[in-house]
């Protein structure tokens, strides 16, 4: 069994109230990805190298400005985990050969969007897990190629309207289950988080920090321009994603998946969908009940399955 210490983060008051990540970045107003990142960074701290793949957050560091107190390396869209491999291995060599003292060691963190994580970068991610690379992987998932104007990606949910799925039924495909794909590699840790559940997020990053090997995090990132909602709704929509069960908060460790927050009374998915312009065609000009029910059923099926396995565990 993996030893995990008791958490420092029990309630919101335990969260840092001054933030390490610098302000002044060009991320959009109300960005759910940036919200998650600044919370993650508060826990990881500045003894870190962020290895970035092409995405919205490539623009965090634009010469001569960076919001990071620690380090950063931009690689390319496909291969950030391979970049992490190089940095990790080189640091290990330097440590082994005593060319740097132990206090110069750093956490190597991959930072990518869903476009890279679910698609082009998946092969490099798989390889890094297979090699048991000691790194953290943070995917900010805004469910589309946001930086190019929100075309559908492997992370786009069923029926969402994107710049390349403008038809009356939206995106015909289904969001890829990246959590399970990652978990199938049996890495040290896999978790889903969201910036609107900051205590859950902080605990998971804390736990990930305490482990060795590949530690994989997906943060759902409500995206005002990409999902088409007013920036001030950003947190509310994230909370609805959790309450409706659309975004399950869970973790994988030692071969077991645990749900860290089970919505006691799940609200209908409709309450989540109707706040977002990308789903407006489900409600106007008339309600597409069939499609809404289909989405609801997927969510219900998921949680039914969770219930079954949870009760089995108890037996």
């Amino acid at each position: 069994m993996t030893e995990v210490k008791a958490t420092f983060y029990r309630r919101m008051k335990d969260l840092p109230s001054t933030h390490l990540l610098g302000t002044g970045t060009p991320m959009c107003s109300g960005c759910g990805g940036l919200e998650a990142l600044h919370q993650v960074y508060d826990v990881i701290g500045e003894k870190s190298v962020f290895v970035n793949a092409a995405g919205c957050m490539t623009l965090l560091s634009v010469y001569p400005f960076t919001p990071f107190r620690g380090s950063w390396l931009y690689t390319a869209m496909a291969s950030a985990p391979a970049g992490a491999q190089g940095v990790r291995d080189a640091l290990d060599i330097l440590l082994e050969k005593k060319r740097i003292p132990p206090e110069e060691n750093m956490e190597v963190v991959v930072l990518t969007g869903d476009g890279s994580a679910y698609g082009m970068g998946l092969s490099a991610t798989s390889g890094a897990m297979e090699r048991n690379l000691d790194f953290l992987y943070i995917c900010y998932d805004n469910e589309g190629y946001g930086n190019t104007g929100q075309q559908y990606s492997g992370a786009t949910p069923h029926a969402a309207k994107t710049a390349t799925s403008k038809g009356p039924l939206g995106f015909p495909g289904f969001k890829k289950d990246l959590f399970s794909i990652w978990a199938a590699h049996k890495p040290a840790y896999v978790a889903t988080v969201i910036g609107t559940e900051p205590v859950d997020l902080a605990r998971k990053i804390e736990k990930a920090r305490s482990l060795k090997g590949p530690r994989m995090i997906i943060a759902l990132a409500p995206c005002p321009p990409g999902w088409d909602f007013d920036p001030k709704e950003s947190v509310e929509i994230g909370k609805l994603a959790v309450k409706s069960g659309v975004w399950p908060l869970k973790e994988y460790i030692d071969g077991k998946v645990t749900h860290t927050k089970i919505p006691r009374q799940r609200i209908p998915v409709e309450d989540y969908l109707k706040h977002q312009g990308r789903f407006a065609h489900l409600f106007e000009p008339q309600c597409n009940d069939a499609l809404i029910n289909e989405i609801q059923k997927k969510v219900d099926d998921y949680w039914d399955e969770v219930q079954k396995t949870t009760s089995l565990d108890k037996e």
Partner: peptide
């Protein structure tokens, strides 16, 4: 960027049946 509008325009024409073609977004 800055190519994306090309595929968006083609995708929209296909969605509205103004163009008889098939478009697929690959992963790279």
């Amino acid at each position: 960027t800055p190519q994306t509008e090309i595929i968006e325009a083609l995708g929209n024409w296909i969605d509205t049946d103004e163009m008889d073609a098939r478009m697929v977004t690959l992963e790279s």
